[in-house]
Amino acid sequence: MTILLYLIPAALGLGLLGMVGFLWALRSGQFDDLEGEGQRVLFDDADAQQRLRRPKQ
């Protein structure tokens, strides 16, 4: 049963990673405009950096 000592922290760690990732995405405003972001992917232009600048909340 010592395997549990690895498996449980691993499981919790992965879950935590997902949650932290989601909270980060939420904080950085990625859920603010669900319609627009989906369509923005389709723009291919040279100045991609420009669009990464988003307003600070």
Partner: peptide
């Protein structure tokens, strides 16, 4: 809209939200 505004040298951020 975003591209036209970014073409102005003094504009730092121009962002349109489709939702709001």
């Amino acid at each position: 809209i975003e591209q036209a505004l970014h073409a102005q040298p003094d504009v730092t951020v121009a962002r349109v939200s489709a939702t709001t």
